[in-house]
Design a protein around this nucleic acid. Structure first.
Length: 466
RNA sequence: UCCCCAGUAGCUCAAUGGUGGAGCAAUCGGCUGUUAACCGAUCGGUUGUAAGUUCGAAUCUUACCUGGGGAGCCA
């Protein structure tokens, strides 16, 4: 069903016409005159008034004696109407020949469509500030490769604008949630001296006369920070040099990673659940027009309420036995693949926690289950509709001796982890946390097929430009 | 790293081994309420690269390059 998708860059035209109305009328007006300019997304509050807009010509239609000029300004999209008698002859002819995406200044009276009632602008002033060259992205369908080559221009089209607006709102909600709950933002470094988890492939870079690696997680640093601040989180880009070639993978992606002092596995699940419900609520409250543009079935998001089901890894294996195919049977001790996760998540109408994975398939810093050392106090949150792992986390190993032994068992250089072991030497404490992948979450909330559309400039295997 | 598919006009796609076309874009013209507007005309090509088979290759073969889909790995 996913197949190749010739993308209609402008395929949202049947939906809401506004590109965004995220925070109506919250832009401050004051002494900075720039802020006094009227934005398209606020035009509904100016019906009957004469306004001046600065933007770009998004599309143009004409019936000979009347032009329909669609103007966008980054905040929204409005149809301008220019009748033969509204402007002088030269301006009328100019408007008919202005190329798509030219920078324009227009003025006129805000009005409403005689039939649909949609807000529009009756133009009596039209000035081309900069005529655009032939714009590569047309109003017809395009292939993904072409659109990605023109990602810097593709951002201007409505679907991309909507998805990235939702991303921005999601990031805002993430910060709001943690600050409302007493977390301190502690940023982790991007250059790191060693592999955080020692397993996956890292990007290596020159660091003067030494080598450095791009971080794959701020996790270990957050553990140290939790001892300083109690509740902490980091939010930033992370890097994986995996040669993954799927719709769920980027080589550069954003993660938010909270870490909580004196938290147990159950605490981690409670917080992750509360956090996710908050994020969905925020997007549902603030991004209705964008969700409509993306034609997202919001009923599926509105159905996400507490509590989320919590099943153990062992119970997940049972579910696979009941509902999975022959090939989807996983022997105990192995992690699930994407297909297995989808089978499990399809049994529920909301995200599902899978906890207590086998110790062998989780990172060395996961605490062993005191009742069974073969299991770890780890947890993943699997999103519905096949979006896979949205959150991974758990309770951390807080015993110095156990951790030293695990670092040795994983073949990691102990000297690189001395600072990390210090967290256990000086007042060790139970703690836990999780990481949430921003792009996968945005893809799920937007109902997008591929995470590459959820980040402004995606970095993929074989794609480093633009 | 492995498997599959595709590279033809700026874009999206056609074309039994036998004269490479259409829609959109662009350019020109027509139309007073259009919604990816519509109608007419014009413009547009070293068929990804290299070699091979053949009287003849966009079409068949091989290699390479690029892109897409999937797997593994992972978030």
């Amino acid at each position: 069903m996913w197949g190749r998708f010739p993308q209609k860059a402008f395929s949202d035209r049947s939906g809401q016409r506004t590109m965004s109305s995220t925070t109506p009328n919250t832009i401050p007006t004051g002494s900075v005159t720039y802020y006094n300019r009227v934005l398209i997304r606020h035009l509904a509050n100016h019906v009957g008034q004469v306004v001046e807009l600065y933007g770009w010509l998004y599309n143009r239609r004409s019936s000979g004696k009347i032009h329909f000029l669609e103007i966008r300004d980054g905040s929204g999209l409005v149809q301008g109407v220019m009748g033969r008698n509204d402007v002088d002859e030269a301006t009328f002819a100019l408007a008919d020949h202005t190329p798509q995406e030219s920078a324009v200044k227009v003025s006129g009276t805000v009005s409403q469509h005689p039939k649909t009632g949609a807000v529009e602008l009756h133009i009596n002033g039209f000035e081309v500030l900069s005529q655009a060259g032939e714009y590569p992205i047309s109003h017809k369908e395009h292939g993904v490769g072409f659109l990605m080559d023109n990602r810097h221009l593709w951002l201007r089209s409505s679907r991309q604008h909507a998805a990235l607006t939702i991303r921005s709102e999601l990031c805002l909600a993430i910060h709001q949630y943690f600050h409302q709950h007493g977390f301190v933002q502690v940023d982790a470094p991007i250059f790191t001296p060693n592999a955080c988890e020692g397993t996956t492939n890292l990007f290596e870079t020159a660091y003067f006369d030494d080598k450095a690696y791009l971080t794959q997680s701020g996790q270990l640093y957050m553990e140290a920070a939790a001892a300083a601040f109690g509740r902490v989180y980091c939010f930033g880009p992370t890097f994986r040099a995996e040669k993954s070639k799927t719709r769920r993978h980027l080589t550069e992606f954003w993660m938010v990673e909270p870490e909580m002092a004196y938290a147990t596995l159950d605490d981690v699940m409670d917080v992750a659940e509360d956090f996710m419900v908050y994020l969905i609520g925020h997007v549902l409250t603030h991004c209705r027009p964008e969700l409509a543009t993306l034609e997202r079935d919001v009923a599926k998001l509105e159905a996400i309420v507490k509590p989320f089901p919590r099943i153990s890894y062992d119970e997940a294996l049972e579910l696979l036995k009941q509902h999975g195919s022959e090939e989807q049977q996983v022997p105990w001790g192995e992690d699930f693949g994407g297909d297995e996760e989808t089978v499990i998540s399809n049994q529920f109408d909301r995200p599902v926690f899978i906890h207590r994975y086998p110790t062998q398939c989780k990172a060395f810093y996961m605490k062993e289950d005191p009742t069974d050392p073969k299991k770890s106090l780890s947890v993943d949150m699997i999103g519905p509709e096949g979006y896979g792992e949205l959150i991974g986390g758990g309770q951390r190993e807080d015993d110095l001796a156990v951790l030293e032994q695990k670092i040795a068992a994983h073949g990691l250089p102990k000297e690189d982890f001395e600072w990390f072991l210090d967290v256990r030497r000086y007042g060790t404490f139970s703690h836990g946390g999780f990481g949430l992948g921003v792009e996968r979450t945005v893809a799920w909330l937007c109902g997008l097929h591929h995470v590459r559309e959820t980040i402004p400039f995606p970095r993929l295997l074989d794609r480093l430009k633009p």
